[in-house]
Amino acid sequence: MNIDDFKSNDQVAWCPGCGDFGILTAVKKALAGLNREPKDILFVSGIGQAAKLPHYVKSNCFNGLHGRALPVAVGAKIANPALTVIVTSGDGDCYGEGGNHLMHNIRRNADITVIVHNNQIYGLTKGQASPTTDEGQQTPVQVDGVVLEPLRPLELALALGAGFVARGFAGEMEHLSRIIIEAVNHKGFSLIDVLQPCTTFNKVNTFEWYRQRVYKLNDDNTYDFTDKFSAYQKAAEWPKRIPIGVIYKIEKKTYEEKTGISAKPALIESNIQDIDISRVLKDFA
């Protein structure tokens, strides 16, 4: 497979220069590298600019409600575990509106990959604070600056026991595509928080701002991504220096393994004609 096999005919509706373009390129590159057919891949998204990404990739797409991508993705994965299920979400969608689903799906640990386009701002609704906007940043709504402390998604995921926690940067496409491949190949819930400059509404966290701060973890192969204590330290490193790469990775039993779903034929393969309920009725006799 190559990148062109994942080319969609839909017109892209992002602002010129948006960080999402870098993520889209990285996603397509990763898909080509994963060598899976478009028909066997399902992208699920909610609402926001990130949520449009599935339309720009040739693969199955369920673009649902704001914040609700995760439950749809997990439902689809349970029904057909052979699907490669990838969620594209944003900081508002995943960390705000859908926060409860993030918490509990980390616990559920179904084998899905969640890519969060984190631009630290609300883009689609034109520039209000998101859960990850830095304290003090002024917006059209938070006129005196953001009062709430920013949510730290990687620390949250680690605290909840996520088996794969990573950070990418939209300006490092090759690096990001490698993280995506690793995340998809990881068995279980994988979270990739991607630093994504919003060129229109976030004048603070620009490409330049991120470029001055990001550094690649494990360039020298000395970082132990299985050590949770180091992972917490790296996840908390912000904003002077911002590590990108796989921060934590550990093998855990997946939802599909624990429930036995992966060992049985997929739900969608069930023959539902003439199911014999006489055995059930006997219990009510």
Partner: peptide
């Protein structure tokens, strides 16, 4: 989550 999970599973074919 309950209804969205059901919709995901239904979309997939169950």
């Amino acid at each position: 989550a309950a209804i969205n999970m059901a919709l995901g599973a239904s979309f997939a074919g169950a």
